[in-house]
Computed example of a mutant assay.
Amino acid sequence: MRTANDGRGDETWEDPAPDAASSIPASSDDDATRVMSRDDLPTVTRRGDTDETTVLSRGPLPDGTVPTDDDPAGTRAFDRNDPAFDGLFTDPATSGSATPDAPGAPDVPGRTRRFVHDRPRAEAVRPTGRPSTDDPGPPRRSRPARGRRPAPRPRGRRRIRLRWIITLILVTALALPPATWGWVWYTARQDDRVATDAIVVLGASQYNGVPSPVFEARLRHAQVLYLDGVAPMIVTVGGKQPGDNFTEAAAGRNWLVEVGIPADRIIAVEEGSDTLQSIRAVSLVFDDNGWDDATLVSDPWHSLRSKVMASDHGIDSGTSPSRSGPAVIERRTQLWYITRETASLWYYWIFNDSSDIRVNAA
Rank of each mutant, 00 (worst) to 15 (best):
A73I: 01
T12L: 15
A21T: 11
L335V: 12
V214W: 05
G238Q: 01
Y207L: 08
L304S: 01
L168M: 13
T247R: 06
A21Q: 12
M36C: 08
G239S: 14
D118S: 14
A173C: 11
R305A: 02
D228F: 01
S57Y: 13
T90P: 00
P300W: 11
W183G: 05
I315S: 04
P326R: 01
V210E: 13
V282A: 09
V328P: 04
S27G: 00
A32S: 13
A231V: 06
T167D: 09
R141H: 06
L162R: 15
T236C: 06
R280K: 15
T43D: 08
V55A: 06
R161H: 15
V282C: 10
P139T: 04
V35K: 12
S355Q: 08
W349S: 09
L88I: 03
P150R: 13
V328G: 06
S324M: 03
I357P: 08
T172N: 03
F246N: 09
R143I: 02
T342P: 02
A122T: 09
E14A: 10
P178D: 04
S320W: 06
T339F: 04
G314T: 07
A145F: 07
H221Q: 09
V230I: 07
R38G: 10
A310E: 00
V269N: 07
P152D: 14
D69K: 04
T75H: 08
T53M: 11
T99K: 15
V44H: 07
T90W: 06
Q206I: 02
E270A: 13
D86P: 00
A77K: 03
M309Q: 09
R126M: 10
M1F: 14
P211G: 12
H313C: 11
D19M: 09
R140S: 04
I267R: 12
W185K: 08
P150S: 15
V201D: 02
P72R: 01
L225C: 09
I338P: 00
D292I: 13
A310Y: 04
Y226G: 05
A32E: 15
L61Y: 12
R146E: 15
T53D: 13
D288C: 05
P67Y: 00
P242V: 05
T180S: 02
P154G: 12
T90N: 07
G325K: 03
A222G: 05
R157P: 13
